[in-house]
C-alpha cells in the first residue's frame, strides 16, 4: 500500500483525526506538529524522497491560526513544494493541504475517502 504522511496541526487537524476514532492503517503516518507554519518546504520533499506517495498537510482555517499566520505560511510553502515537484517532473498532486477546524470531522473523512485511506 502506498505510504501517506499527514502533517497535522495539533490545534485542528490532529484533533479531528483523534475525534474520528479510527485506527489508522499502517501505511498512514500521522505526524502531530505545533503549527503547520513550522513545516519546511524541504521537509515535505524529504518525505517524498523517503517513499511517501502523498504528503497531506492539515492546517487550521485560513482566518483562524493560533500563531496568526502559520497556516498562511504553510499554504505558500506547499505551493513552493509543488513547484519543486513540477521541476523534478513529478505530479504536484503528491502534496496537498486542507484547512479545517477541530470539529470538521466530515470534511476530513471526505478527504481520507478520496485519498483511499478509509
Amino acid at each position: 500500500m502506498s505510504k501517506i504522511v499527514a502533517f497535522c496541526c495539533e490545534n485542528s487537524g490532529h484533533k479531528v483525526v483523534e475525534s474520528l476514532g479510527l485506527s489508522m492503517p499502517s501505511n498512514v503516518d500521522i505526524r502531530k506538529i505545533p503549527c503547520t507554519g513550522r513545516l519546511e518546504i524541504a521537509q515535505m520533499l524529504a518525505e517524498i524522497e523517503q517513499g511517501a506517495e502523498k504528503v497531506l498537510v492539515l492546517a487550521c482555517p485560513l482566518d483562524n491560526c493560533k500563531y496568526v499566520r502559520g497556516n498562511q505560511r504553510a499554504a505558500k510553502r506547499v505551493a513552493a513544494a509543488k513547484n519543486a515537484l513540477r521541476d523534478a517532473g513529478l505530479s504536484e498532486d503528491m502534496i496537498r493541504i486542507e484547512f479545517m477546524s477541530s470539529l470538521d470531522k466530515h470534511k476530513l473523512k471526505a478527504v481520507f475517502v478520496e485519498m483511499g485511506v478509509i
Partner: peptide, 18 residues
C-alpha cells in the same frame, strides 16, 4: 542552508524519476 536542502531534494527527486 534551507535553500541548499530544497535544491538537493529537488535534484534527487528528478534523478530518481529519470
Amino acid at each position: 542552508e534551507k535553500e541548499t536542502q530544497l535544491l538537493a531534494s529537488t535534484i534527487r527527486l528528478s534523478d530518481k524519476k529519470q
